[in-house]
């Protein structure tokens, strides 16, 4: 009886030793040499895989940085600090970047925009967009929050009026919300821009006004009043700001009848300010 136990213990031990030897050999022989800098870069990145750099994830971006295919400033989520850290690891000039922010270019919420039907399909913006949506305006915000779902930095919420809000302090400018929006209402802009047309409606004035109280009615007053000639142009019944000409003053917005063009008036909310005084959802 004892003999059986000893034989089995010894044989199992021997098999184990052989296997262990094989594993040690395999580990040495098949070892993959990895540049230690990839690990360092990976640690320096936010590792949220937001996709703002244009690569599928942080690891792939780190590899692209190593190959010299990407610039340290491409990591929009990390900002200047990350860029400096990455440049330190890679031994290159960091360069500087402008902070980008998401801007929601529609103010036609539940209170302003006419609703013409009830939408009962799948509650995502893209699905609703395929049916034309429930608002009479077919260019405006669908209000189902696909942008908020796409945000990985807790920098957005849907407000009581059914419009998305971007938190100034949390937005890293990755652009995930802008990519998620089926109607291209969210755009990425440098944080120092102040002049925005908060409308995407291309309908003629009378119809646009009928369907939404804050639609661009293509009256052309902002175009006339703009201090820089050509700084604002009327394209397909919609005022469009030409940022390359950088209109720097606010005259253009004063006479807007629907207040859809604004100069830095859209309040920049921080996350804490938004949630203070309201129960957390």
């Amino acid at each position: 009886m004892l003999e059986t136990l000893i034989i089995s213990a010894v044989s199992m031990g021997a098999i184990g030793a052989v296997m262990a030897g094989f594993l040690i050999y395999a580990d040495r022989k098949l070892k993959v040499e990895e540049d230690p800098r990839v690990e360092a870069i990976s640690n320096a990145l936010p590792n949220t895989n937001c996709g703002g750099c244009g690569y599928p994830g942080c690891r792939v971006f780190a590899e692209a940085l190593m190959k010299g295919e990407a610039l340290p400033t491409a990591c929009v989520a990390g900002g200047n600090d990350t860029a400096a850290a990455l440049a330190g690891i890679l031994g290159v000039e960091a360069g500087s970047m402008k902070r980008m922010l998401a801007v929601v270019l529609c103010r036609g919420g539940n209170a302003e925009a006419e609703r013409r039907a009830e939408y009962r399909g799948d509650m995502t913006c893209t699905a609703s967009h395929l049916t034309g949506g429930d608002k009479s305006c077919t260019y405006g915000c669908l209000g189902l929050g696909e942008c908020v779902d796409a945000c990985k930095f807790d920098a957005m919420a849907m407000n009581d009026n059914g419009l998305p809000v971007v938190f100034y302090d949390k937005c890293v400018g990755c652009g995930a919300c802008a990519r998620a929006c089926p109607r291209d209402i969210i755009e990425m802009h440098p944080e120092d821009r102040k002049l925005f047309v908060y409308c995407k409606n291309l309908d003629k004035g009378a119809y646009a006004r009928k369907v939404c109280k804050v639609a661009c009615v293509a009256c052309g007053l902002c175009v006339k009043d703009c201090s820089v000639p050509g700084g604002i142009v009327m394209k397909n019944n919609l005022a469009v700001v030409d940022y390359s000409l950088a209109p720097q003053t606010d005259e253009s917005v004063k006479r807007c009848p629907t207040k859809c063009i604004l100069w830095g008036e859209e309040e920049k909310v921080t996350r804490d300010a938004y949630y203070s005084g309201r129960p957390k959802a």
């Binding site: 395929l130 034309g132 077919t138 291309l202 309908d203 003629k204 119809y207």
Partner: peptide, 11 residues
């Protein structure tokens, strides 16, 4: 000649 509703849901 203007934008109008289309049964496919767009203008």
């Amino acid at each position: 000649i203007e934008l109008a509703n289309h049964p496919n849901g767009y203008r």
